[in-house]
Design a protein around this nucleic acid. Structure first.
Lengths: 123, 123
DNA sequence: AATAAATGAAACCAAAAGGTTTCATATTAT
DNA sequence: ATAATATGAAACCTTTTGGTTTCATTTATT
């Protein structure tokens, strides 16, 4: 089997502010197009097109339920962005490392029951 | 003094693959336009315009030296992207945490004792 | 002083992006 | 069966984007 090779890449997908808002919205809840579009100052069709682009980039998944199609966040492709970004860590010096920590700071309770040891040996 | 309020945002700036290549190139070395453009299959003017967009987003700085203008990476605005991205850490589960660790390849001692993050306002 | 080099601005162009309205289709409700 | 709802496709429009060529300006070289 071959990799899906998305039509739109994640960099382009997140370039638009509407699409970034969509991702935020669909992280919380799984929603059909009409419900989604009520949050935006544009037509349902326009929102639908944005969703298509996000879907092409693998950032949302679609599930058809009766006559509606529910969209939900699929965060995995954002890892590519994270990887791209990680390259530039080397350019941030110690002053900025402070900010970096503030920004990255994870809730320790949110790491999950397995904790950091969940990473198998041999990494 | 007021914040510079960039004309182009970082999301849009990195959406173009040429501009991402430019950032990589200018991380290593500080270069004038003509030297830069030799790395790209387009005219010097086109490269110059891309540099302008990166400059507007604060991602490169310009220094005039004689008749040439040297460009260099300015990584700080990428922190905004990193902050935006950090929001989605909560959606990656343990399976993906493995990949995340592979991808980030950070010293575990570097994770630090900081508490939960403040989710930034805006998108 | 004359020439060459490095650059940006301007005018222009084709294609892509972001939006609209209209229409067709599938599914549910009455 | 009929009507209403949810959606995508199509055609269309305007603005932005990514590129070009040409020209003017500033700064070296010879």
């Amino acid at each position: 089997m071959q990799a899906p090779e998305p039509k739109h890449d994640v960099f382009q997908a997140i370039a638009d502010p509407t699409r970034r808002k969509l991702l935020r919205l669909l992280g919380d809840r799984e929603l059909p197009v009409t419900a989604i579009s009520s949050h935006f100052p544009m037509t349902r069709t326009a929102v639908s097109k944005h969703l298509r682009i996000l879907s092409d980039a693998g950032l949302v998944s679609e599930q058809k339920v009766g006559r509606e199609k529910r969209y939900k966040l699929q965060p995995e492709p954002l890892l590519e962005l994270k990887r791209w970004l990680a390259y530039y860590d080397r350019f941030w010096d110690n002053r900025l490392a402070v900010l970096k920590h503030l920004v990255e700071a994870e809730d320790p309770a949110d790491i999950g029951p397995l904790g950091p040891q969940a990473v198998p040996p041999g990494e």
